[in-house]
Computed example of a mutant assay.
Amino acid sequence: MEQTLAEPRNRYSTVSLVLHWVVATMVLCQVLLITVHEAQEGPDPFVGLHKAGGVTILVLTLIRILWLLANPAIALPDRMPRWEKLFARATHVLFYVALIVIPLTGWLASSAGGREFTWYGLFQWPLLPIGGGRDTARDLMDLHEIAVKGLYVLIFLHVAGALKHQFIDRDNVLHRMIPIIPRRP
C-alpha cells in the first residue's frame, strides 16, 4: 500500500510540533519586545524579557536538535524536485544555526558588557566568562543584528515555501505541520 502524507507516520511528532510552534511564537515575541524597547526612552522592562526569551529560544533549539537527532525529519514528498529538497533542508539547517547564533551573540554581548539579567525574574542568568567591555559587546551586537536580518530572510523563505506547497503544489506539506488544516484529497 502506498504511503500518503495524511498517514500518521508521515506527520511530525507532537514534540516536534510543540517545539516548532513555541519557538516560532517566541521569535515573534522577541521581535515585538525589541521593537517596543527601541521605541522607549529611559529604562524599560522589555530588554530583560527579550534577553530571557533569547536564552529560552537557545535552550529550546538545542533540545529540538537533540530531538531531531533521535527522531529524524520525515521525508519530503517524492515528487519534489531534488533542488527544492536541498533548498528546503538547507533553509532548515540555517534556521537552527540562526536560532543558536542570535541568542548566543546576545548572551555574549551581555556578558562582555557585564550586563546581568534574570530569567523572567526567577533567577540570575549566568554571564559567560568573556571580557572586552563595551567595544566587544558592541561588536557582538553588530553580529547579533546581522544574524537577525538573516533570520528575517529565512522566515520569509519558509513562509513563502509553505504557502507555495499549500496553494500551488497542493501537496499537503503544510498539513503535516499544522494538523488543523484539512488534508487535500
Rank of each mutant, 00 (worst) to 15 (best):
M1N: 09
M1T: 11
E2R: 14
E2T: 12
Q3S: 15
T4S: 15
T4L: 08
L5I: 10
L5S: 14
L5E: 12
L5G: 14
L5T: 11
A6D: 08
E7W: 02
R9D: 13
S13R: 09
V15Y: 07
S16Q: 13
V18L: 14
L19R: 11
L19F: 08
H20N: 07
W21H: 08
V22M: 11
V22F: 09
A24S: 13
T25P: 00
M26N: 02
V27R: 03
C29A: 15
C29K: 04
V31I: 15
L32C: 07
L33N: 05
L33V: 01
T35S: 14
V36P: 02
A39W: 10
E41S: 11
E41Y: 09
E41I: 06
G42C: 08
P43K: 10
D44L: 06
V47K: 12
V47N: 09
V47S: 07
G48P: 01
K51T: 01
G54Y: 15
G54I: 08
I57E: 04
I57K: 06
L60P: 04
T61P: 06
T61H: 02
L62M: 12
L62F: 08
I63F: 15
L68C: 02
L69R: 14
N71L: 03
I74C: 03
A75G: 05
A75N: 11
D78I: 04
R79S: 15
M80Y: 10
R82H: 10
R82K: 13
W83I: 11
K85M: 04
K85W: 01
F87V: 00
R89Y: 14
A90D: 09
T91S: 14
H92F: 03
H92A: 06
V93R: 00
V93W: 00
L94Q: 00
A98M: 15
I100R: 01
I100D: 01
I100Y: 00
L104H: 01
T105Y: 02
G106E: 06
W107S: 08
L108T: 02
L108M: 13
S110H: 10
A112M: 04
G113C: 11
G113Q: 09
G114E: 09
E116I: 03
E116R: 12
E116D: 14
F117S: 07
W119E: 06
W119Q: 03
G121N: 08
F123L: 11
Q124H: 13
Q124P: 04
W125R: 04
L127R: 12
L127E: 10
P129F: 01
I130L: 15
I130K: 05
G131S: 14
G131N: 09
R134D: 13
R134C: 01
D135L: 10
R138H: 15
M141Y: 13
D142V: 12
E145D: 12
I146L: 15
I146F: 13
A147S: 12
A147K: 07
K149L: 14
K149F: 14
G150C: 11
Y152N: 06
Y152H: 12
I155D: 03
I155T: 06
H158K: 00
H158Y: 02
H158Q: 04
G161I: 08
G161C: 03
A162R: 05
L163N: 00
K164N: 06
K164M: 04
H165M: 06
H165W: 00
Q166L: 08
Q166V: 03
I168P: 03
R170A: 08
N172F: 10
V173A: 07
L174C: 00
L174N: 05
M177P: 04
P179N: 10
I181R: 01
R183A: 14
R184S: 11
P185G: 12
